[in-house]
Design a protein around this nucleic acid. Sequence first.
DNA 1: GCCAACGTTGGC
DNA 2: GCCAACGTTGGC
Length: 155
Amino acid sequence: MSPRKRHWLMKSEPGDFSIDDLQRVGSEPWTGVRNYQARNFMRQMQVGDGVLFYHSNCAVPGIYGLAEVASAAYPDPTQFERKSRYFDPRASREQPRWDLVDVRFVRHLARPLPLEEIRTHADALGEDFALIRKGTRLSVLPVTAAQWKLLLSLE
DNA sequence: GCCAACGTTGGC
DNA sequence: GCCAACGTTGGC
């Protein structure tokens, strides 16, 4: 029996890869995570886990869509590709350093949920919500069932 | 473009 | 193991 479904938030710069891009391709390997904490969260992911798709570094940062985890974690191939911006000379195929999961499009939100608005619910979301915790810049972070429910009630 | 906050690297 | 320097993230 697999553990019950969990929830995550994953950030992407829309100029790089947006929710519209994900809709177009259907499913995408989440390449380029080079932070150990974020990598470790991806290692915990199970197929079917829910994902809030967040746009960062853009005019209106916020949650724009829903996705789901479509694979277990496996080595990020870009770490081995010398020409990739994500190449890591310390990684080898025998000893990969970075993992990723495939992420599958589910739907756009009925309306985007701006970070500015999410902040107004900080009390209800709680101090453990890494998205709005001061100084946290994780690109992959866990979301509790309660936080997930609250956020989706706002769309 | 600025810059605060944080993670990583590498000299010692 | 310390910590200064550097690079990155990401809101504004």
